[in-house]
């Protein structure tokens, strides 16, 4: 059996704010294999976002071990973490986080700016990503001229542009209506079928149904970890 892509063991994360210590994660262990589509669920404060940030190299863990693709992550320098974010992961945020007054193409190009690839190659990749989310006709539009669903598709294209090993989606349907939310989930499922590993944080049961595996969290610990045999395609309701 292939080695897991992500191996977390007894991961804790404490935030110290003056005298107050917040224990966001209290010992989380689980693996993610390449090609999975995982939904991480849980009420707010359960630690699901912290877990995602740690896996996405945006936050560091307090204790425990994290091995990504055979490489130990704790102890990596800030620059090495930035390089991991650039090469290995793509992020999709609830509030899209697009550059205003910038075109779709330029938004998708943004992550490649830090890669050092030749310009022509970067544009080729960006166009491929835009095609993957079916927004070719919007390429030269400014991001503030787009609908919410289109914005999130741009964000997904941006996450795909550096050909990441894994995509993290943080409440990707949170700011969208049912109809467009469904389209985004369909798109993520489709990308998963094409071989992309996806981790999605959500608190919507309906959204989680699209995943192949559902992890539930409570109070900084795993509550359950079940595979989802009857993955939903279509019929998403809020």
């Amino acid at each position: 059996m292939a080695k897991p892509l992500i191996q977390l063991k007894d991961v804790t994360r404490h935030y110290v704010n003056g005298e107050v210590v917040t224990r966001a994660l209290r010992g989380v262990s689980f693996d993610i294999k390449a090609g999975e589509f995982i939904a991480i669920m849980g009420p707010s404060g359960s630690g699901k976002s912290t877990l995602m940030h740690i896996m996405g190299f945006l936050d560091s863990l307090t204790n425990g071990s994290y091995i990504f693709d055979g490489r130990s992550v704790p102890g990596l320098s800030d620059d090495a973490l930035a390089k991991m974010r650039q090469d290995k992961v793509g992020f999709v945020f609830q509030s899209f986080n697009l550059l205003q007054k910038s075109t779709v193409l330029n938004n998708v190009l943004l992550p490649t700016v830090y890669g050092g690839l030749p310009k022509a190659e970067r544009i080729k990749r960006a166009k491929r990503s835009i095609k993957a989310v079916s927004l070719e006709h919007r390429s030269d539009h400014y991001s503030n001229q787009l609908s919410g669903g289109e914005k999130q598709r741009v964000a997904i294209a941006r996450a795909l542009v550096n050909d990441p090993t894994i995509i993290f989606a943080d409440e990707p349907t949170g700011n969208l209506d049912t109809k467009t939310g469904e389209l985004i989930l369909e798109l993520l499922a489709e990308l998963n079928e094409q071989g992309h590993t996806i981790v999605m944080v959500t608190h919507e049961e309906e959204a989680a149904e699209y995943a192949s595996r559902i992890v539930r969290m409570r109070d900084g610990m795993l509550e359950s970890d079940t595979s989802n045999g009857h993955r939903r395609r279509g019929g998403y309701k809020k």
Binding site: L58, D78, A82, R85, L99, L110
Partner: peptide, 12 residues
């Protein structure tokens, strides 16, 4: 924040 999330370093 976004630039950092997509791989910008401190120096950049």
């Amino acid at each position: 924040g976004l630039r950092k999330a997509v791989g910008a370093t401190y120096k950049e």
